[in-house]
Design a binder for these strands. Structure first.
Lengths: 221, 221
DNA sequence: TGGGTCGCCATTGTATACACGATAGTAGCT
DNA sequence: AGCTACTATCGTGTATACAATGGCGACCCA
């Protein structure tokens, strides 16, 4: 009874372009031409336009009438703004999750924390893809568990950015261990239904991530 | 040397539909047909589609593939979620504004508070249009003064909703006076560069607004 | 009479053609 | 030589034609 989940050309364009943006396929400042993308995906300009506008509304690209879309560059101010907002929204999500999470949520959070730990320290070297995957799902699950459906779309525009996604490759062993520990702490706080604790850990968690970013990007790119 | 600000069909469609949504032109659950709207505005479906997708990304309408867009109804849960997020984001904005506002910002805030007071109590009866206008600009200015450019787009999706916009018609004299007072307090707190004070007042302000909404919508519509 | 299936129709999804604004390169003028 | 105006060209903006989908009602059959 699973629906075939129709594949619309718009979704193909959206996912592909988005993936390209996250993967850093186009340098900052690049001009994304509708025709080129359409040809590449074997579809027409219409769905490409739709995908680009959607990405623009999520601030994944910059759009200007008659000029098209450009891949934005990330200034230090952008970075500061994004992390400041993440501190507020994700800590709020954690607090709400502590109030509304089900036992299933808690168990899933713990499993994801273990996955992340395994991916980080279970092998000869960290598996950054798995780490990122587990981290991403962990943070999303907290938003889901918060029960606030609008929160997801707000936070979505903040965490799915190239410079946030690829953060983990920049973590040293200590920072990685701290990050994993935070996830276990968050699961504990939420299991304990202690909103204050959850909020505090999440604030600390995002601040820590921000500091790693700021240090490492100083002389980067 | 002011640019004529070319009017694109897309913008016409976007503004018109948005205005219609805020004015409550279509009842909740209405199905907005692209062709109808296009005919009404004398343009083609293409820019209408673009406008509708944009409104969908702002959650002003609900979109489902192959079915089109519907005007959403607002459940009590929606209302609770929206105000909970406003408490967090607008209070954060107020705190940041206290840190970054210029004297010009402060003066403009005070003027808007006076405008609102005048519109509410300066005549035989409240001028709801002017009140809403002054209130809207006041809140926007605080976000602007916060210096966080991404905050505007996040908050924008929360405050420009039909049920938020038309709140003031439901305020009694006491609630109105309290709201005006909060605005003066916010201006004072920001002028004093006291972020903690500004945050506290804004949290109280949004909570108060939320309570008025919840009471009045109970047996409404 | 009730349930199920088929097919029509309304509406959205996509492609394509054309219009128009923006830009860059060039030629002509000062 | 430098500046300006013109023009060619590229790319986006809009319109329209056509394809595909999903809802809904009619019809058939038990």
């Amino acid at each position: 009874m699973n629906k075939p989940e129709r594949l619309r050309a718009t979704d193909i364009a959206y996912s592909s372009i988005r993936q390209g943006l996250i993967a850093g396929r186009w340098p900052a400042g690049s001009h994304l031409r509708e025709t080129e993308l359409a040809d590449e995906f074997g579809i027409s300009r219409t769905p490409v336009r739709e995908a680009l506008r959607r990405l623009a509304s999520e601030q994944m690209v910059e759009f200007e009438p008659h000029l098209g879309v450009r891949v934005p560059g990330w200034s230090e101010q952008d970075l500061a703004e994004i992390f400041a907002l993440r501190v507020e929204l994700e800590s709020f999500a954690a607090g709400e999750a502590a109030r509304h999470a089900t036992p299933d949520h808690v168990e899933a959070l713990r499993q994801l924390a273990r996955d992340m730990e395994q991916a980080a320290f279970g092998g000869p070297q960290p598996d950054y893809v798995r780490i990122t995957e587990a981290n991403d799902r962990f943070h999303r699950l907290i938003v889901t568990a918060s029960g606030n459906r609008r929160l997801m779309s707000l936070i979505g525009t903040l965490i799915e950015l190239p410079l946030v996604i690829r953060t983990f490759a920049r973590f040293d062993t200590k920072a990685m261990a701290r990050s994993v520990q935070h996830h276990f702490d968050l699961a504990d706080a939420i299991a304990d239904r202690n909103a204050d604790w959850a909020i505090a850990v999440m604030r600390a968690h995002i601040h820590a991530g921000r500091q790693v970013m700021l240090k490492k990007t100083a002389g980067d790119d």
